[in-house]
Amino acid sequence: MKKLLLAATVATLAMNAAQAAPTLYGKLNVTLDQIDKNGFKDESVTKVNSNASRIGVKGEEKLTDSLSAVYLAEWGVSTDGAGSDADWGMRNRFVGIKSDGIATLKIGQFDSYLKTAAGNNQDIFNDHTELDMTKVLAGEDRLSNVIGFETDKKLLGGLAFNIMFQQGEQNENATTKDPVTGKDVTIPLTNAAVGQKGSRNGFGDGISTSITYENKDFGLAAAVAGNFAVASKYNAYSLSGVYTDAIRVTGSLDLKPAGLDGLVLGGLWQTAQPTDDTVTGFKGLKENAFGVTGAYAIPSTPIKLKAEYISAKTEVDGKEDRKNDLYGVGADYQINKQARFYGVVGQQKIDWQKDNDKKTTIGLGMEYNF
C-alpha cells in the first residue's frame, strides 16, 4: 500500500512539474542573398542574412478551472553574427490572465494589432530582411508599455476584438540646474512628441485596435485595424518615431472550398498620417498603400509558390509624391513541419531617385522552427 501511495505521489508531482514547465521555442532563418544596388547605391553585395531569427519561452498555467496565467518572453538571435538582428534584442514579451473561451488580458511589449492584422497571407515574405513589407509600409510596429485585451475567436463564432493601450511614460516637466543660483529649475515639456501635440504622460496615450473574422468553412479571413497616436516610420522620407493615426484593412481567401486546393489570395489596404499635422518640414504628410499576394501549395508535393506586390505613395504639401514599390516571387520546399528550404527573387523600386532606383535581391535560404 505504501509503495502504491509513493508511486501515486511521484506521478502527481511529475504531472504538476510538466504543467508548470515553460515551452522553449524559436526560429532560425538564414539566407544567402545577392543584392544589386544595395541601399539604392551603385554597389552590389553578397550577404548572409539572419531574418528575424529568435528564441523564446512561453507557457500557460492553470490558476482555477477557468483562469490561467499566460506568459511569453522572446529575444532576437543573430544567426549570422552580424547585421540588424542583434543578439538578445527585445522582441515580444508579456504576462497576463486568460479566461478560457472568453478573453486574455496581457501586459508588456508586443506587436500592435494593426501589425498583426496582416497575417501570413498578406505578408508572405514576412521576416525576410529585404522583402518584408516593413520596407514599404508604415504601421509595422511593436509597442512597449502596453496593456492588451483580446477576445477568444470561439466566443463570437470567429469574430474577435482586440485593443491595447500604450502608456507614454513621458514626464510633463524636466528639471535642470540654474547655472547662476545652482537651484533646480522646472522646464515644461509641452510638445515633446513628434507628430502629436502635447505630452504623453497618461493612460492610453497610444491605442491599437482590431476586429478580426475567420471562417474556415468558406476559407475567409479578414480584419479591420487602427493605430491612434502610435509612433511609426515613413520609409519614403526615412522619418521614424512619428506619432501616427493609421487604418488597415486586410483579407485572404483560401479557394479550397471552391475546388482550387492549395490556392490562397490575399490583399491589404491602408492609410496613415501624423496624429497632428505638426512634423516640421513635412506639412500634409500622408501615406496611402495597398498590397496583393498569392500563394499556391501544389497538391501532393512539398512545394509552395508565392508572389507579392506592395505599393505605397507618400504625400507632402508642396513636394512631388513619392512612390515605393516592392514585388517578388518565391518558392518553398517544405521538408517537414519544422524545416523548409526556399528561394526568393524580388525588387524594390523608388521613384524619387534618378539613378540606382531599383534594388534587386536573389536569395536562397533555410528556416528551422523548434
Results as ranks from 00 to 15, higher is better:
335 I>N: 02
122 Q>N: 12
149 F>E: 01
187 I>W: 07
193 A>S: 09
250 T>A: 11
195 G>W: 00
59 G>K: 08
188 P>G: 07
341 F>A: 09
300 S>P: 02
31 T>L: 09
370 F>T: 11
334 Q>I: 14
8 A>S: 14
164 M>C: 02
27 K>G: 03
59 G>H: 08
320 E>N: 13
39 G>C: 12
114 L>Y: 03
153 K>N: 04
231 A>T: 05
158 G>D: 04
114 L>I: 02
350 I>M: 09
296 Y>W: 10
78 S>Y: 04
92 N>V: 07
160 A>P: 04
59 G>P: 10
106 K>G: 06
370 F>H: 14
285 L>M: 02
266 G>L: 09
70 V>G: 00
119 G>D: 10
11 A>S: 06
132 D>C: 05
353 Q>C: 13
133 M>G: 09
355 D>W: 13
280 T>C: 09
46 T>Q: 11
127 D>I: 08
217 D>C: 01
288 N>T: 08
248 R>C: 05
18 A>E: 12
24 L>A: 07
207 I>S: 02
29 N>F: 06
52 A>N: 15
40 F>P: 09
290 F>P: 13
301 T>Y: 13
143 L>N: 04
255 L>A: 11
66 S>W: 08
94 F>Q: 00
295 A>H: 10
223 A>Q: 06
274 P>H: 09
174 A>W: 10
85 D>P: 04
19 Q>Y: 03
369 N>T: 11
186 T>Q: 12
311 S>M: 03
142 R>V: 03
240 S>T: 12
14 A>Y: 09
199 S>C: 06
301 T>K: 10
47 K>Y: 11
112 S>N: 07
26 G>P: 13
261 D>N: 12
307 A>T: 13
276 D>M: 08
355 D>A: 15
113 Y>R: 03
334 Q>S: 14
237 Y>L: 11
11 A>P: 01
111 D>L: 08
144 S>H: 05
5 L>T: 11
332 D>S: 01
345 V>F: 15
221 A>Y: 00
135 K>P: 00
26 G>H: 08
184 D>W: 01
316 V>L: 05
72 L>H: 06
169 E>I: 02
17 A>V: 06
261 D>V: 05
286 K>L: 07
93 R>H: 15
207 I>C: 00
42 D>N: 14
125 F>Q: 15
202 G>T: 10
219 G>K: 04
310 I>N: 14
232 S>P: 11
16 N>Q: 01
202 G>H: 11
159 L>V: 08
50 S>I: 00
265 L>C: 13
264 V>C: 03
312 A>E: 08
246 A>Q: 00
114 L>E: 07
73 A>Y: 14
9 T>P: 05
96 G>R: 04
